[in-house]
Design a protein around this nucleic acid. Structure first.
Lengths: 215, 215
DNA sequence: TAGATTGTTAATCGATTAACAATC
DNA sequence: TAGATTGTTAATCGATTAACAATC
């Protein structure tokens, strides 16, 4: 891998899409694919796809294209999907439960060990075997169970407090669903899912169709 | 508004963040803000902020900055948040219920009229007054109730079928949470929330911290 | 071998940043 | 008036596209 230079975030955000389509191909038993065919599927240009992949190494072969199985495996490694991770969820409302219930994440190696909430009515309940615990126990639980990923599905008012508990107990990455920008130390990776921003963008294009074209 | 040329999607995706911070300021009673102060809050450069806003008109005043109330109102109009919209949700599982329950969307003018599912155990139940109906009735319901926005929170296997019902019944925009790329006619606006792609991006940066810097 | 398709360099395009005159 | 800050043009930077030699 020629990883001397930082790969840009725009490239990184395309990788999961390649990975998804390659998985589809793999399941269909197709074992060979060209950048041109991938272009048709993903909507990115063939040139862009070749450039993107070459940030990480030469996975293809002239005159042939890419081996689906190999490229899928390589992209999985690049994305860190060859490992597994322990996660917890703060906020056991609908959204927290939705994330806990989503089988796809577990299949990809992300295991939710526990949910946490402050609502006594929720504490003790189970979502698919996953217990909801008191948020007061969260810091201890994280330290004892080798938890790397902290998910935030609380209301925005509590998001920063939760982030601080995560930070203090050694969480390495935060997946944040609250509509707030968290302040945490630079070593912690944050990935935001800002649903309101997504909805407002949709609203913009609904009102300005002439500006819209499939990205 | 000098709207001769298409505004780029990268600009549009920053607007909701401006809007959110301006709302915060408004609630704090602050009525004046400079691009430099906005820069500190949002993390975008002051220059970029001024450029972005000037795509839509000169909302500021030399030597003064921007009037918070006015800018907030203007951005709201640009984003189409001065109107209200009827929406339905296909897929009444946890994720669909989470979206239906989220008060923030309704406050912003997005009203969920009904959820739809094919599971008989869910049909007839109510989420905050919002009834879950049989998905077979969905097309009719949309036509009768002036529904513009269709939300998809089904498993990916059903997403394309739902999209087609939406298309045929006159939906104008689809907010898609299923990990699939929908094929619909060009007049329909699609906004995807691909949670798996977000999680995989987080996973990448967790494994390649040196590539990571707050966007 | 002939055809296909990569890896990679160079050209183009677009987005961000810098700079500053205009002006409140 | 003096200071502040916009709106806007020009400069820079980065990302995408085009092109093609290398080679399977």
């Amino acid at each position: 891998m020629d990883r001397d230079n930082k790969v840009s975030i725009t490239v990184i955000r395309r990788l999961p899409k390649y990975y998804r389509y390659l998985g589809d191909l793999l399941r269909k038993g197709i074992n060979r694919i060209s950048s041109q065919q991938l272009s048709k599927m993903t909507g990115f240009t063939a040139s862009q796809i070749r450039q993107d992949l070459n940030n990480f190494g030469g996975f293809g072969q002239q005159g042939y294209g890419y081996n689906v199985d190999e490229l899928y495996t390589q992209l999985g490694k690049i994305l860190g999907l060859d490992k597994s991770y322990n996660a917890v969820i703060a906020g056991a409302g609908n959204l927290g439960q939705a994330v806990a219930n989503y089988k796809g994440f577990e299949d990809a190696g992300f295991k939710v060990l526990s949910l946490f909430d402050k609502n006594p009515k929720l504490i003790g309940l189970k979502i698919r075997d996953i217990e909801i615990r008191d948020v007061d126990e969260m810091g201890d639980y994280i330290r004892r169970n080798n938890v790397e990923i902290g998910i935030i599905t609380t209301p925005k008012e509590n998001a920063q407090d939760i982030a601080e508990i995560y930070m203090k107990s050694g969480i390495k990455a935060i997946w944040n669903f609250a509509p707030a920008d968290l302040k945490v130390s630079d070593e912690i990776v944050i990935e935001n899912v800002h649903l309101n921003e997504s909805l407002f963008t949709l609203s913009y294009f609904l009102n300005n169709k002439s500006d819209y074209s499939r990205d």
